[in-house]
Design a protein around this nucleic acid. Structure first.
Lengths: 154, 154
DNA sequence: CAGCAAAATGGGCAGTCTGCCCAGGAGGTC
DNA sequence: GACCTCCTGGGCAGACTGCCCATTTTGCTG
């Protein structure tokens, strides 16, 4: 990951539709170079692809909630298996600290959220839970700043 | 968002590099239809684009941590402004419940993480904090299940 | 410092896709 | 029945991709 790699990724972050040719023009390098860089980044697993970015709010899932679950000894995989079956569960992390599992979920409205939370929480091996609703997202998911740092140096 | 929209998005989720033409073939519809659907989805804000998916682990940021911050009355925007300046802060949500702010951050190694956490936590208006380190991610960020549901019905 | 391997350059070529256009047909509404 | 929206199938010029090549630059090694 040198500066050129980072600049390329920044460019693609800002304008993902750019083709290889256009990227090479913007960066002032040859087309083959950009192609090689992208191949390498993809090969190393840094660049995983270009998945469509979907706006859950626009899709009708306007509510996001987080739940911290405390799980009975050795039962985490059972709980995870169950969580995976709930479509509204968008993400889950096993963590240190007070809780064992941090779960992010979405819902269409309050009733829906209640239903989802019940599904997540009402489960034999879940000992204790603490749920919070996301009121706003002051920092949208981002990687840009990290890239910028690499892009500047080199 | 009808079934065709969802199927299209599913297709793009699985193979983002697919062009309009190939999508139309796979879905068994005319090319113009796919084009129109994508334009509409993008217009409605559902489809935000195709940003590059970067693997933070492969980039060297192998550690993820979550912090719950309790903020002094009315000082949230100050804290948020500060958080935005820390590149390692990848996401932050204002929440109900015990904490006021849920922050996700990444770091290269333990020392780095310590440094980042200090930056996030050592701040005048932050009252109380609770930090957890993500040990694993049993449910990777996903939207697919929600799409599948729409795709099946109509 | 000479020498080598990896990387970047600039160019060329066939195949394919995009963006845009049009006329016709299908399905639903007033 | 008139109308409107959506999908269809086709055509066209322009642009890009993937791939190839020979040459030059770069950066490291002995």
């Amino acid at each position: 990951m040198d500066a050129l790699d980072a600049q390329l990724l920044l460019l693609l972050t800002d304008e993902p539709r750019l083709g290889v040719l256009e990227c090479s023009r913007r960066l002032g390098v040859a087309r083959g170079t950009v192609q090689a860089r992208m191949d390498r980044l993809e090969g190393r697993g840094v660049l995983r692809g270009f998945p469509p970015a979907l706006d859950l709010v626009a899709m009708g899932y306007g509510l996001t909630a987080f739940a911290v679950l405390e799980i009975a000894q050795g039962k985490r995989s059972s709980v995870v298996a169950r969580l995976r079956e709930i479509p509204e569960v968008c993400e889950a992390h096993a963590t240190t600290g007070e809780g064992d599992l941090l779960v992010r979920m979405v819902a269409r409205d309050n009733d829906d959220l209640q239903r989802v939370i019940d599904q997540v929480v009402d489960f034999e091996w879940v000992r204790r839970t603490s749920t919070s609703i996301a009121l706003s997202t002051p920092v949208e998911p981002r990687v840009r700043p990290l890239l910028e740092r690499v892009a500047r140096r080199g």
